[in-house]
């Protein structure tokens, strides 16, 4: 009696067994494909630090050179052109307060005159002419994401596989019905 009950129960559960396996398998495959896609995407995009840091260094170098040249030039010109020592001192002190790199010039000019005059700062080398006359702004939009013929082919194959799966399922159902009639 117990064996009859268990066989009846398994007979009831058996039709759901295949469907359950299919759904479970599909869920696993979708999860795996998703994880693979995420790992691919993360591998393609360079890390933020690897891209941003060198650019920041490059820009800060530019900024430093321009700041230095302008600061030094103004300090020299004001100091050399003015005949009043007190004027020089005040000008230098204001420069030193606004720009820490000009402290050296303030010490030299504000002394008793025994110190040798500092050598004039070398004129900054003229920037070379850009080889690319006008730099294009930003990136290049060279693609619209449209599908290629290979993509269409893959899509067709996928649809064919869907049809095949449907056919197999239909044939299975028909055989099941025939089997019940025969039984």
């Amino acid at each position: 009696m117990a064996s009859a009950n268990s066989s009846a129960r398994t007979r009831v559960l058996r039709p759901w067994l295949g469907a359950g396996l299919a759904v479970g398998g599909a869920a696993v495959m979708v999860t795996m494909a998703g994880v693979a896609g995420m790992s691919l995407a993360s591998a393609q995009v360079p890390t933020e630090s690897s891209v941003v840091i060198p650019m920041a260094v490059y820009q800060s170098n530019d900024g430093d050179s321009s700041a230095d040249s302008s600061g030094n030039n103004s300090a020299d010109s004001s100091g050399n052109n003015s005949a009043d020592n007190s004027g020089n001192n005040s000008a230098d002190s204001s420069n030193s307060s606004s720009n820490g790199e000009n402290v050296y010039y303030g010490k030299g000019k504000g002394g008793t005159g025994g110190d040798p005059a500092p050598a004039p700062a070398p004129a900054p080398a003229p920037a070379p002419a850009p080889q690319v006359e006008v730099l294009p702004a930003g990136a290049v939009a060279a693609g619209d994401g449209s599908t290629s013929p290979a993509g269409y082919l893959i899509g067709a194959l996928a649809l064919t596989s869907v049809g095949g799966a449907a056919a197999v399922a239909a044939r299975s159902a028909r055989r099941q019905r025939l089997g019940r009639h025969e039984a």
Partner: peptide
């Protein structure tokens, strides 16, 4: 048959 159907669905 059911197993084959499941495999076909997974492949799809």
């Amino acid at each position: 048959v059911r197993v084959l159907t499941g495999v076909a669905a997974v492949c799809t």
